[in-house]
Design a protein around this nucleic acid. Structure first.
Lengths: 164, 164
DNA sequence: CTAGCTGCAAACCTTTTGCCCGTCA
DNA sequence: TGACGGGCAAAAGGTTTGCAGCTAG
């Protein structure tokens, strides 16, 4: 039953198999696109990337797949405003998002204090916390000196508990 | 020109006038509905309430008005999931929302620590915070004892820094 | 009098679905 | 082969818009 399988299956493809999903060509491609995505693509973007690898894929399938994987807990849907849902693979531990209001780029960050604080607040109001959402909308701080050119914008990414 | 003016103008109606908006009958009604809303109605709900006061109002006008008032800073648009935008009057000071996942009811709360924490985080990542969004999705905690019937659900609303 | 509003209906956009054919297991 | 997945196009659901007539200022 396992044939020589799995060998070239993407990370998310493997997760699909684990949960007993039937692996069709389209699904495999979408799983791979998702596995390789380091950002938070919306359906249209996923469709574009998938279509590059295999043109026999329709948007409807991307929508259905993404929905299915969300139900299976493999993906998480995000809403950063702007009308379309965006997706990212489920990861261990909470993390949050800061959206650059000028470029739309998303920066992930962790904050240990937070989850605890959220629970405390819900508790205080007489509720059990089910989930929470936290997003920061911000603008890159102008460089303090002129020692660095525009390309240096990414520098911050490797500091301060940033992920990825 | 001012006639006996302003006298019976709703709070939001007055704000519209301050910003030089032309006060039509429809706009006055919508402003009043918004002024009296203690919750976070979506456009359809606003339309329903407005139509009760004056049936010569169309949804399109509600959409246009709500959008205009948002641009003028009089209203704030919220997205609590579920597809439709919801609105509330802009208020002094930050407050956040806890959405009861079972009933959809929204509870507002303040948390001083929070805004500060958000700024600190953005700062740490090299950004200037423009705005932020925080929502808790939670479920009412089961009553500890059976001393209270269902109607007691609202009890918590008067404690713990809750607003309204 | 005219810039700005409104109603109506059509247009838009993202996401979902019905139907029927194709395919994985 | 039989249950499940996919393509296509139509449908849904929320929101915006073009147009022609109306109105506050």
């Amino acid at each position: 039953m396992v044939a020589a399988g799995d060998a070239m299956e993407s990370r998310i493809g493997r997760m699909c198999i684990e949960r007993g999903l039937k692996m069709t060509g389209q699904r495999r491609v979408i799983a791979r696109v998702l596995s390789e995505a380091a950002d938070h693509p919306d359906v249209e973007e996923l469709y574009r990337r998938a279509a590059t690898l295999d043109s026999r894929i329709s948007v409807a399938t991307v929508y259905r797949t993404v929905r299915l994987l969300e139900e299976k807990g493999i993906l998480e849907r995000r809403d950063f405003g702007g009308g379309r849902a965006r997706y990212e693979a489920t990861e261990e531990g909470d993390h949050y998002h800061l959206i650059d209001v000028d470029t739309g780029k998303v920066v992930e960050f962790e904050d240990a204090e937070h989850a605890a604080l959220m629970h405390r607040i819900a508790e205080r109001l007489g509720f059990d916390l089910v989930s929470h959402r936290l997003e920061l909308f911000a603008r890159r701080k102008p460089a303090p000196v002129a020692a660095d050119d525009g390309a240096g914008l990414q520098a911050a990414d490797s500091k301060n508990g940033l992920r990825r």
